[in-house]
């Protein structure tokens, strides 16, 4: 399985017109024949695109997990679908970080719950008093 889009320097979302042009301009006759029978026929292209998408996913996963030189990743597939490592942080570490920060937030809330509740009650009372006083003033002025 080769990445025909990459070999024809196209994007996977290229229109039929672009593909036709690229196929006609391709100097390698074998590649031209393959691209013609795969990419210019709609049903062939759909099947090819599905597998192409899956292989792109696998290439991305392998790059992030450090498996780009595995024993099962060889030949055309490895040549065309291996990505450079993108220094994405390990998902598991990220999950652990997020859980620990959520836990510390929860603990802090539990510790400061009493004072925060007092402050909140005072603020709500003051707000309600201000609104009522404002309404009374407006009523007096209207009357």
């Amino acid at each position: 399985m080769r990445d025909l889009y990459q070999r024809l320097s196209l994007s996977p979302e290229a229109s039929e017109h672009d593909i036709q042009n690229a196929v006609l301009r391709c100097p390698n006759s074998a590649l031209r024949q393959d691209a013609e029978s795969v990419l210019t026929v709609n049903e062939h292209r759909a099947a090819y695109d599905t597998l192409h998408h899956t292989l792109n996913d696998i290439g991305c996963l392998r790059a992030r997990l450090g498996l780009t030189h595995g024993a099962h990743w060889q030949g055309d597939v490895a040549n065309d679908f291996s990505l450079p490592p993108d220094h994405a942080i390990s998902r598991h570490d990220e999950l652990v970080d997020r859980v620990s920060s959520a836990v510390s937030l929860y603990n802090r809330w539990q510790r400061w719950r009493g004072p925060w509740l007092l402050v909140a009650m005072f603020a709500t009372g003051a707000g309600i008093g201000i609104v009522m006083g404002f309404a009374l003033c407006m009523g007096l002025a209207a009357g």
Binding site: M1, T50, L51, T54, L55, I58, L61, R62, L65, L67, G70, A71, H72, W73, V77
Partner: peptide
């Protein structure tokens, strides 16, 4: 299926299983 060919091989690489074992 073709996709599963590659997924199985990915899993084998992930789990350190050699091609002969697979």
């Amino acid at each position: 299926s073709l996709a599963n060919h590659y997924i199985l091989r990915f899993l084998a690489d992930l789990l350190n299983v050699t091609p002969t074992t697979l």
